[in-house]
Each structure stands twice: as C-alpha cells, then as structure tokens.
Simulated scan of single mutants.
Amino acid sequence: MARRETPEINAGSMADIAFLLLIFFLVTTTMDVDSGVSKKLAEKTPPDVDLPKIKERNIFEVNINRNNQLLVEGEFMEPKDLKDAAVKFIDNGGGVGNPVGDEEGKECDYCQGDKDPESSDHPNKAIIAVESDRATEYGTYLIVQNELLSAYRVLRNRLCQQKYGMSFTELEQAFKDSQRKDDDLRKKLELVKKSYPQIITDVDPTSVQ
C-alpha cells in the first residue's frame, strides 16, 4: 500500500497576521500609571534669612504611624473624618485684628468657623503638617493627602459659590474652556486661591513607633 504524505501548511501568512495583531495591541493597549501626589518642593532657606515665628495654634499636626494609624492633634482619627477636621481648622478664623489676622492683620470676614482662640487665626496662616513613619504604606499617605486637598476644595467651592454663583470646580473649567485667556476668570481664581491657600507641609519621616 502506498504511503500517503501529509500535506504541508503554508504558515507564512499566519506569521504576518500574528505580527499585525502584535502591532495592533501595542498601539491600542493603555498602560496603568502609578498614582502619585503633585508636590512642589520648597527651596532651601538661605542661612542669613530670619524665619518667621509660627504660633502653635496655627499648626494642624497629622501623624501616620508605621501601623498606618492616623493621629490628628495627638488623637486617633479615622481617615474619613480627616477632611471635616481640616475644614474646621482652616476655616476657624480665630484672629481678630492686628497682629493675629492675615498678613495685613485683618480678620477673616469670609470664614464660618468657631473663631476658637486656640485654633488657627486665618486661612493664610493655617499650616497642615503631615508626618509619616518610614514604614507607612504609600496608599495610606495618598489617602491622607487626598482628604486634606478635599478640605481645601470644599472651602474654595463654598466661597466661590457665594461670590460668583458657581463652584470653584466650575470656575476652573470655565477658565480652561477660555484657553486660559479670560483675565476676569483668572482674577477670580486667584482671589479664591489666595483666600484659601493650600499650605500642606511634609515633615521628615520618623522611625518611631
């Protein structure tokens, strides 16, 4: 009986198709981007410059220990409660008259806080100091930063709504839609940002439990 030969399969076209599919997936696939926090690092202060004295009541201490636990002003706090606590501190407006108000000694006339004399004098003087342990998880740090930024967003939205009938988010979008050329919108944005400046500083990480 004659031996039947197995017909060969031309794989040349299949290689071309596989190559085209590889190019297609490389072009169309989106890559995951690691999350991060946009930070502008402060420049080193020259040795001959006298640093201004900061009153303790104008500093809001936020600590994250190595167990990813949050301590605010020395007391344990859940991350979900941090935003409200930061809003209360920033918006306190405890300074009345010179020299405990803003940089010009003026009382905060737009603050709606408790005006507690033991808390911040003015949003322009309210400093949030974040200290983390070297063993703190990065995800926890990001959660804390997001809550603090949300606190400023709440206050800016409220003030912008009162002054211009729109939220700060909407004002920012309107300015972007104008291709950043509308001077009136620019001035409004600068005024709101100046009223509630984001003053968040990172303290050197510790190694203490």
Score class of each variant (00 low, 15 high):
residue 138 Y to A: 13
residue 45 T to A: 12
residue 164 Y to F: 12
residue 97 G to Q: 06
residue 9 I to N: 07
residue 44 K to N: 11
residue 106 K to A: 07
residue 36 G to V: 05
residue 65 N to G: 14
residue 88 K to E: 12
residue 104 E to F: 06
residue 118 E to P: 04
residue 80 K to R: 14
residue 203 V to L: 08
residue 165 G to I: 02
residue 172 E to G: 14
residue 64 I to S: 12
residue 36 G to L: 01
residue 175 F to C: 04
residue 71 L to R: 11
residue 81 D to K: 02
residue 169 T to Y: 04
residue 72 V to K: 08
residue 201 T to Y: 08
residue 120 S to C: 02
residue 20 L to K: 04
residue 154 V to H: 00
residue 175 F to L: 06
residue 185 L to H: 13
residue 168 F to N: 00
residue 159 L to R: 00
residue 15 A to M: 04
residue 117 P to M: 04
residue 6 T to P: 05
residue 64 I to G: 09
residue 171 L to V: 02
residue 199 I to H: 00
residue 199 I to N: 01
residue 76 F to R: 14
residue 186 R to A: 11
residue 63 N to F: 11
residue 41 L to G: 12
residue 89 F to T: 00
residue 59 I to K: 10
residue 94 G to V: 05
residue 11 A to N: 12
residue 139 G to S: 11
residue 177 D to I: 00
residue 1 M to Q: 12
residue 98 N to K: 14
residue 25 F to V: 10
residue 35 S to I: 08
residue 1 M to F: 12
residue 92 N to T: 06
residue 48 D to K: 06
residue 140 T to A: 10
residue 41 L to N: 15
residue 184 D to W: 00
residue 129 A to D: 10
residue 63 N to L: 08
residue 63 N to K: 13
residue 206 T to S: 15
residue 156 R to N: 00
residue 6 T to R: 07
residue 110 Y to C: 07
residue 125 K to Q: 05
residue 6 T to E: 05
residue 127 I to Q: 13
residue 146 N to Y: 01
residue 178 S to M: 08
residue 98 N to M: 03
residue 129 A to P: 09
residue 50 D to H: 11
residue 184 D to G: 05
residue 147 E to H: 02
residue 130 V to P: 09
residue 94 G to H: 02
residue 125 K to H: 14
residue 18 A to I: 06
residue 13 S to G: 01
residue 54 I to S: 09
residue 118 E to I: 02
residue 166 M to R: 00
residue 178 S to C: 03
residue 27 V to N: 10
residue 88 K to G: 03
residue 28 T to A: 12
residue 201 T to K: 13
residue 137 E to V: 05
residue 38 S to P: 09
residue 169 T to Q: 05
residue 154 V to C: 03
residue 84 D to H: 03
residue 61 E to D: 13
residue 79 P to D: 05
residue 52 P to Y: 08
residue 113 G to F: 09
residue 42 A to P: 04
residue 85 A to H: 14
residue 107 E to Y: 11
residue 148 L to Q: 11
residue 122 H to A: 08
residue 34 D to A: 12
residue 183 D to S: 09
residue 103 E to T: 05
residue 101 G to W: 06
residue 143 I to T: 13
residue 26 L to C: 15
residue 37 V to Q: 15
residue 153 R to C: 02
residue 36 G to F: 13
residue 51 L to K: 14
residue 176 K to D: 04
residue 90 I to K: 01
residue 71 L to I: 06
residue 68 N to D: 15
residue 106 K to V: 10
residue 75 E to L: 06
residue 114 D to Q: 11
residue 146 N to H: 06
residue 145 Q to V: 08
residue 75 E to H: 12
residue 109 D to M: 09
residue 15 A to G: 07
residue 76 F to H: 15
residue 164 Y to L: 01
residue 19 F to A: 14
residue 120 S to L: 01
residue 10 N to D: 15
residue 189 L to N: 02
residue 143 I to M: 13
residue 105 G to R: 02
residue 52 P to F: 07
residue 119 S to P: 09
residue 155 L to K: 04
residue 11 A to D: 12
residue 106 K to Q: 12
residue 198 Q to H: 02
residue 202 D to H: 10
residue 23 I to R: 10
residue 2 A to F: 02
residue 61 E to K: 07
residue 13 S to V: 03
residue 105 G to W: 07
residue 120 S to T: 08
residue 193 K to V: 00
residue 26 L to S: 12
residue 109 D to N: 13
residue 193 K to I: 01
residue 173 Q to K: 10
residue 132 S to F: 06
residue 97 G to W: 06
residue 147 E to W: 00
residue 79 P to G: 06
residue 200 I to L: 05
residue 91 D to Y: 07
residue 163 K to D: 05
residue 113 G to A: 08
residue 73 E to Q: 15
residue 51 L to G: 10
